[in-house]
Nucleic acid binder design. Structure first.
Lengths: 361, 361
DNA sequence: TCCGCCTTCTGAATCCATTCAGCCTATACC
DNA sequence: GGTATAGGCTGAATGGATTCAGAAGGCGGA
């Protein structure tokens, strides 16, 4: 069983035309505009192509000529492989895939360099008709590279406020304010927070106010600000709220953060997490410690991933699939505009059994 | 806030060279081979490029010239959006992404046409250096289109036995034979089976022997054959085993199949499913009907997805991530070969609490 | 002073297909 | 018979960059 001939192309559109004694235009039309030539001739072209092993017009040459790649690029904060581990990211991908399917466009996942240091060259080398940039920190080099290219761009979630660039995301601040109000409404006054990474460099531990100021992840910044807003409604001073930061949005990281909060602040009655992954891990830690939820500890998340409902997690639902679809459609939408678009998708506070009245200390 | 200029390119490598009074080669070298020109000149080139708004060498032109796309294509049986809903497919994708990251290659997801009828043209238009074909039925038109292109191809799982093409998959037959032996070893003699789609056209219902013969999904064919092998070891005649087929690998479909089996064959003591999704749904149906697992009903799955362990599901573990990585590496591996490669990854029967001794009727 | 080598840079062929404007021949109609 | 029309086909310009073989100039060594 020998390998298929992977030989360099033998025949080209031109050589096929020569062989047939017709013009290149005609051969091209045989593939791209069947109505432009007689069925007989077309058949003869196709037959001869098969005979000569001509695989049809070369995609790269066609792309060069037509200035169309037939694909959109997608760039992540994280390494690609991580993206597939985050349920929220997967749902987003599904939405983007849906939009691409409908448009008949390919979806090119652009990998970040795995080592440490970024290589934005990969962005310059991607043959695409536009980019969707998913949740990047302020000042990211890949994003900078994307913006250098003369292509349409849609930013999802973050960074916010990049001038002249389409954006789709949430009102993260308002959504988290609702969580804060929900908690204080239940009587919680001593609240701990588990936040995802605030900076590009790994930091696992408490994030004081100074550190919060330096956050380059806009979404996380806004979520903390929203929690502050909401808790303030109950007279809670944000400066007194312990925030535990974790670089990885993983169950293990969430568990360690929850443990740290509970150890250092045994009096807290609620933990608000900026992701469901953290919140689910926190529920597990509570269970292991024999804390009853919500009686001893209330827990909230963000995203409303699939596992949230069965776990009874109070959280903020965001339409992740719609987000992907909206981003894809926005990018693929050809209509000319003078103004950058700005789409804010709705969120809902979903109250389940993981929150309830604060225990009276 | 007006949109960024998305204008057609103003400057080209040639115009930049002309502006600078240097050759095109020199400009090209400034980007691709910094060591081939003096640092001062290189800086001057880069500065002028910025000034003229030249975004660097055009990816399509470069691809045409170098005959390299810097990306690999991935094709699914299903529409892309479905792929993200199947946990096994997501794990596979993660593995492929890992391989691509390491090689610095992009990953182009090629969408199948959403409507009904396939459009293999999308395969011919994809600018990639090779294709991974994930689990396709015999005679699939997209696969045929892939094979027409003079590019390396790796087939994952199915179809099997395509001559001269690299392949990575499992010994599905042996893996399922182990399940069959496990069940008969526990004393089960009346077993029902839930199988995934056998043909391209939707069919939801019992699949008799004749129908099983017509299956175009090789993996499903092999899994059924394996179950037959294993059950035969206990004297069970395959012709007597009811097989319930479902087109969609979804919880709802699995539940309806389980219900159908239990209704029509109330005497069965075990249900073997060819996917974990089906098996988990079957467990749920058993619960709803008040059947104790495994006492009243034993259940087995296939894949060992994340949810399998918490559910106590006896299943076959397959290294889904490794499969993706292996496929990616195989495709990206440049070394010349004369023989097509054939990689069979190991599987394990994982016995958990969903199987136990058959009840004595 | 001359030779050889290294560094820096250039010329021109090449990758492969798309597409606009237009030509020719029949057919249709009056 | 004459003219408009449609169908079928062609010529040639064009898209933008890579890369090989080699030229020109500078420098060290004998």
């Amino acid at each position: 069983m020998s390998v298929r001939p992977r030989s360099r192309r033998k025949a080209t559109l031109a050589s096929l035309a020569a062989e047939l004694g017709v013009s290149r235009t005609t051969v091209s039309n045989a593939y791209n505009r069947p109505d432009q030539l007689s069925p007989q001739l077309r058949q003869r072209v196709l037959d001869t192509a098969r005979l000569l092993g001509y695989p049809g017009p070369d995609p790269m040459a066609r792309s060069l000529r037509t200035r169309q790649a037939g694909a959109v690029g997608l760039i992540f904060t994280e390494t690609l492989s991580y993206a597939f581990r985050d349920p929220a990211a997967v749902a987003f991908l599904e939405g983007m895939a849906l939009a691409c399917e409908q448009a008949g466009a390919g979806l090119l996942l652009v990998p970040a360099a795995p080592g440490g240091l970024p290589d934005p060259g990969i962005v310059h080398r991607a043959a695409v008709d536009g980019f969707v940039v998913y949740s990047m920190p302020d000042g990211d080099p890949y994003l900078a590279a994307v913006l250098e290219r003369p292509l349409p761009v849609v930013i999802v979630d973050e960074p916010v406020g990049v001038s002249g660039v389409d954006w789709v995301g949430l009102d993260d601040r308002a959504a988290c304010a609702a969580i804060g109000r929900h908690l204080v409404g239940l009587g919680h006054r001593r609240v701990g927070v588990i936040a995802a990474r605030l900076t590009v460099n790994r930091h696992d531990g408490p994030a004081d106010l100074a550190r919060q100021q330096t956050a380059v992840y806009a979404v996380e910044r806004l979520r903390l600000a929203g929690l502050a807003d909401g808790l303030a409604a109950g007279g809670v001073r944000w400066a007194d709220v312990p925030v535990e930061e974790r670089f990885d949005n993983s169950p293990a990281a969430g568990a360690s953060a929850a443990a740290a909060l509970l150890d250092r602040h045994p009096d807290i009655t609620a933990i608000a997490c900026t992701t469901d992954v953290f919140a689910l891990a926190t529920l597990e830690v509570a269970r292991q410690r024999g804390l009853r939820v919500p009686h001893d500890l209330a827990v909230t998340g963000f995203d409303d991933v699939r596992e949230a409902a069965p776990a009874g997690l109070t959280t903020v639902r965001q339409p992740m699939l719609d987000k992907g679809r909206a981003a894809g459609r926005m990018l693929l939408d050809e209509t000319e505009r003078t103004e950058a678009r700005h789409v804010q998708l709705p969120t809902d506070l979903v109250v389940r059994s993981s929150t309830g009245p604060a225990r009276t200390a």
